[in-house]
Amino acid sequence: MKLFSLCLIVCLLQPGCDRGQNQTVMTPSQKKKRMLNDPILKHKVSQMALDAEVLNDIDWLVRTGFYVKTDLMRIICEEVYYQYSLNTDQVSATIDERLAAYRAEQKNWPDVTDCDRLDQAFARMEKRGLITLENAGNTQSDGYEIFEDALQEHPQPKTVIGYCFYHNQDLERVVGELPLYLAFGPVAPKEEETKGVAIGNIVREELERSGLEVEWEGTFHDRLRVPGMVWQKRIPE
């Protein structure tokens, strides 16, 4: 399995955290993926043909809806499988096939998908002073660090009151038809207990306003969840 190490690489290209909020209990398979950050532990891939692991990685990346072909070629050939002599013609042809199939599926999607609703909710959160991030790092700690970078680059940082994001493992779960988990919190860690719930309420309100179901215990220590979300994110042209 390379999805975890793959996610670590690709999502640093995108613009919470462990601090105070419950982590989802990891399965043995997820723990194995965490270990795969070390290239020494990566499985060997056939140099003559694309095996099931490579095909699954390509399919997963396509279904996230975040990457065009040039991104996919670089990620697969130069980053995730850089140690192996993959047949680039086969990789290219497979990516073309999967992209074409995915775009064909999009023709049967509803006019407004759950991913569109999430985008709408994130846009309104931004207007209310949150920095929202998609595909932000590999863990909640990564996501918070990316938030801090985004805050430094924000044109009006004093207007920012908090954040909301999901990271790579969250993306992997929701593409796999599990609930989407969202991290949230105030700008300053020292204000998590006093202002964290207020930020969570903003996130919940905007998600529900977009027509998404929300599960949340109402505390900073519990991440919000969007159950039953159908991941249909349109691939950029």
Score class of each variant (00 low, 15 high):
Thr139Phe: 11
Val203Gly: 03
Pro189Ile: 06
Gln152Lys: 09
Gln47Ile: 11
Gly218Trp: 02
Gly143Met: 07
Val174Leu: 01
Leu99Ser: 00
Glu237Leu: 10
Ile202Gly: 01
Thr159Cys: 10
Met48Ala: 14
Asn201Pro: 05
Arg223Ser: 01
Gln83Ile: 07
Arg234Tyr: 10
Leu151Gly: 02
Asp114Glu: 14
Glu191Met: 13
Leu178Lys: 14
Glu192Leu: 12
Glu205Asp: 05
Leu118Phe: 13
Gly16Trp: 07
Tyr163Asn: 03
Val68Pro: 10
Arg223Gln: 03
Arg34Ser: 04
Glu53Ile: 12
His221Gln: 11
Pro28Phe: 03
Thr159Ser: 10
Ile161Val: 04
Asp170Val: 00
Asp149Arg: 09
Asp89Thr: 15
Glu205Asn: 10
Ile58Phe: 05
Pro189Tyr: 06
Val62Thr: 11
Ala183Arg: 15
Ser29Arg: 04
Ile76Thr: 06
Phe147Gln: 03
Ile199Val: 06
Leu61Lys: 06
Leu151Met: 02
Cys164Leu: 01
Asn22His: 08
Gly137Thr: 11
Met73Lys: 12
Arg128His: 09
Asp114Leu: 12
Glu97Trp: 06
Asp114His: 15
Ser29Tyr: 12
Leu207Met: 04
Tyr84Thr: 14
Glu172Met: 04
Gly162Trp: 00
Val112Tyr: 13
Gln47Ala: 14
Pro28Thr: 02
Gln156Ile: 08
Lys233Glu: 00
Gly196Tyr: 04
Ile202Phe: 05
Leu178Cys: 10
Phe184Ser: 02
Leu36Val: 05
Met35Tyr: 07
Leu12Gly: 11
Thr219Gly: 05
Glu134Arg: 15
Ala123Cys: 12
Asn22Pro: 01
Glu78Thr: 12
Ile146Trp: 06
Cys77Tyr: 05
Pro186Cys: 05
Leu72Phe: 06
Arg209His: 02
Gly200Phe: 01
Val160Pro: 00
Ser92Arg: 14
Val197Ile: 06
Asp89Leu: 14
Thr194Arg: 09
Leu180Gly: 09
Gly65Leu: 13
Gly211Cys: 04
Ser46Met: 03
Glu206Ile: 04
Ala183Cys: 15
Gln140Met: 13
Glu153Ser: 08
Val45Gly: 03
Val214Arg: 00
Asp111Tyr: 15
Val230Phe: 07
Ile161His: 02
His154Ile: 03
Ile146Lys: 06
Ala183Asn: 13
Met1Pro: 04
Thr219Glu: 05
Lys2Val: 02
Arg103Met: 08
Asp149Ser: 10
Leu41Asn: 07
Asp57Ser: 13
Pro236Glu: 00
Gly162Leu: 02
Gly228Phe: 08
Trp60Lys: 06
Phe147Asn: 01
Asp119His: 15
Lys107Tyr: 12
Asn201Arg: 09
Thr113Ala: 10
Leu61Met: 14
Arg117Ala: 14
Val80Asn: 03
Pro189Phe: 08
Gly218Gln: 02
Val187Gln: 00
Lys107Asn: 08
Lys32Arg: 09
Thr194His: 07
Glu172Pro: 03
Tyr81Gly: 00
Leu118Lys: 10
Leu133Met: 08
Ser46Ile: 03
Ala198Gln: 09
Asn135Gln: 15
